[in-house]
Design a protein around this nucleic acid. Structure first.
Lengths: 238, 238
DNA sequence: GTTTAAATTTGACATAGATCAAGTTTGAAC
DNA sequence: GTTCAAACTTGATCTATGTCAAATTTAAAC
């Protein structure tokens, strides 16, 4: 079980960008890479913005600690949270296709990221086939993760099953980092969860209360423990 | 505007697999590829199953005509539709990571697919760098499409906005094939749409009726025409 | 520690969607 | 064409979630 102190980082070995980042580091010795090709563990404070919706793509990020929310503005100036990223996960890689970020990425709490220049990665890819192959694996893995993520929420409407699916999803995604598959230090507030799930924060609060009353979960401050994983999975499956 | 006769296929030029499929065809002349490396336009009847959930990955498919639904069974034996695929789109590529399909792919109506052997594609990729590069672009495009798809539905709960988002989504995805960005020949029945969106078919029916009464759409048999795209976009955005 | 604003919970009522039931329409098989 | 089952629509009621308001808890700033 790893230390969960907030100053701790995900290990490079557990980072999804490692397969691209490592060969670049090795290549640095033989190829003339500019200094900006890779920045490791850039510290960011709460509400720090990595990039804005519709900025041109320049870098791909991997979360090394903390959490980021991905937001979109709608016409009427409301902010919709359309995704969350946890340590070891990528941010911005879906812009490789359109060359433009299509959401704003904002730090929740003190966090940190590693950053790889797309330009450098691409030109190195021509020289080092290993990078290409790794990039393919990285992208197919990402494709799978997205599919799972989509499946988790599509077709669900009841507040109970949405929250159950959400808890399972974030606990699973953080398991390798936290070392637990039944608990999590909730990095995001009720309002943001409600926004993401399309519920009202009052409704979400009631479901949290009900889950506690029914002995499905235990909440202590920001920490959530699943008391009956089976029942939660059943709820999420509905 | 293209002919929309159901026997027509999406052009290879408009198929997302083309960037991988074409180089393989070219390579066939110089490399010793087995006969099974590529099957073009396999005809499938209604309810034909391409592969089952948890089958090991062997091939990646691209829809050349018709429509496929992606389904998952839950514990209580109900079938959940977790995605649709239209001409030019891929099926099964997200299994590249886990090596196992994680849903069942079923034809809706008479359809057809092209099929590429993953084994052959991978071994050819070592010899022909072009295939690797094209695969990367294919996967990042897919990543983007999935993200858009996710965004379209996450956080939406009202039946109105779900249906509006659904109509826009499928019309957009079929536009290059049908030649229209305001109408579509609906390939899927109300029950399946309701299942996918997590609504009851009665509710969906009521929303369809309301949209027609409010002059937002026109329905003639299976054909749907958007009368006020602006209003539908506004509904979907909420 | 105290103060204070923000986050969360709870209550009362309104409303959208689910459920159950009964039509009506559509289209395939004959 | 006719028949029939499946798909779709509509109506009446019930329930879950939204809405608005107020109370309570939490945690940040001092």
């Amino acid at each position: 079980m790893q230390n969960k102190d907030k100053n701790n980082f995900v290990e490079c070995d557990d980072c999804s960008m490692n397969s691209v980042c490592q060969p670049l580091v090795t290549a640095k010795q033989s190829i003339n890479l500019s200094e900006s090709y890779l920045h490791r563990r850039i510290a960011t404070k709460t509400n720090y913005i990595l990039f804005n919706q519709s900025d041109p793509l320049t870098d791909i990020y991997a979360v090394s600690s903390g959490t980021f929310k991905l937001c979109q503005q709608t016409d009427d100036n409301t902010e919709n949270i359309i995704g969350l990223r946890f340590p070891g996960e990528l941010i911005g890689e879906d812009a490789l296709y359109l060359k433009t970020y299509n959401y704003t990425a904002i730090a929740i709490g003190d966090s940190s990221v590693c950053k790889v220049s797309v330009e450098q990665m691409t030109s190195c890819g021509q020289l080092i086939p290993e990078i290409q192959q790794n990039l393919i694996e990285l992208l197919s893995r990402q494709s799978y993760v997205r599919q799972r993520n989509f499946q988790a929420y599509i077709g669900k409407k009841s507040a109970d099953s949405l929250l159950a699916a959400f808890l399972l999803n974030i606990i699973e995604r953080n398991a390798s980092y936290t070392g637990s598959d039944t608990s999590i230090e909730l990095p995001i507030n009720r309002n943001d969860i409600a926004n993401f799930l399309g519920l009202r924060s009052e409704t979400l609060s009631r479901v949290f209360s009900k889950f506690q009353k029914d002995q499905l979960i235990q909440v202590k401050g920001k920490k959530i423990v699943l008391l009956s994983q089976d029942k939660i999975i059943k709820l999420a499956d509905f």
